[in-house]
Design a protein around this nucleic acid. Sequence first.
DNA 1: CATGGACCCTGTACCAACTACAGGGTCAAC
DNA 2: GTTGACCCTGTAGTTGGTACAGGGTCCATG
Lengths: 137, 137
Amino acid sequence: MSEKSAGPGRTIGTLARETGVNVETIRFYEREGIIPAPPRTAGNYRLYGPGHVRRLAFIRRARDLGFPLDVVRALLALADQPDRLCGEVDDLVVEQLHEVERKIADLQRLRDELDRLAHQCRGGRISECRIIEALSP
Amino acid sequence: MSEKSAGPGRTIGTLARETGVNVETIRFYEREGIIPAPPRTAGNYRLYGPGHVRRLAFIRRARDLGFPLDVVRALLALADQPDRLCGEVDDLVVEQLHEVERKIADLQRLRDELDRLAHQCRGGRISECRIIEALSP
DNA sequence: CATGGACCCTGTACCAACTACAGGGTCAAC
DNA sequence: GTTGACCCTGTAGTTGGTACAGGGTCCATG
């Protein structure tokens, strides 16, 4: 076994490899209060347990889905309260869905404009370039 | 006439209103060397002429199309050389088009995942929430 | 026991592209 | 002469990290 990963007590580099989160990013999350500060070894190394792995994996998945960090924070807080109703979680997901849909719509408009622009090039000099013209007043 | 805008000699606020670019952003562009520093009045106010209006309007359009600032810089440099061929301009537009298409594809994958996630909510407690489960390891 | 290399620590600066002040000066109107 | 709108510089904050610099720790090998 090359990595002592299952038990409680991995260093930050091992945690990084296990979760696919950068070492610097993990420290950044700790500074931001998104993950709790872990205990330290005698040599001042951070020591993470399985709980940290789960929390960080959760964060990574949420970030991969595009949730901003403060929403990730909210999701984590909700996940920690098993008795509350699911509604708030669903609301956050739906809101993120709409956000993504808005961004897609914006980018599609952009793509159409760029497409039109790209097709205007007739290969002459810049002085008669339709693209530059289209950008000029 | 409420704004002396046509002739040469508007202050930064007037330029901002004419072009739809924020006052702070105009000063930022000047610091970044994207627009040249204009002459000043006796009272140290920036005084812009029609050339500045055109350049800033060009920048705004390019930014609205999502071009990053360094590409805007390149487009401006090309626009200033009327004898060069249009090819480079077209290349920049096509590259930006592809960039936008990549982003759309990424966001569409995200949307599909979020959509699946959002439909998993059965309205129970968080302890049995499928969304939280899906985010957990 | 020393030493090398992989790993860890803190702290700071940097990225894009702005935005938001703070703390002051200018200008025109009333 | 004073108000209020506008302008000036300079600095810090935004988001979500990344990239060092300059040091300390750990462990295996010689």
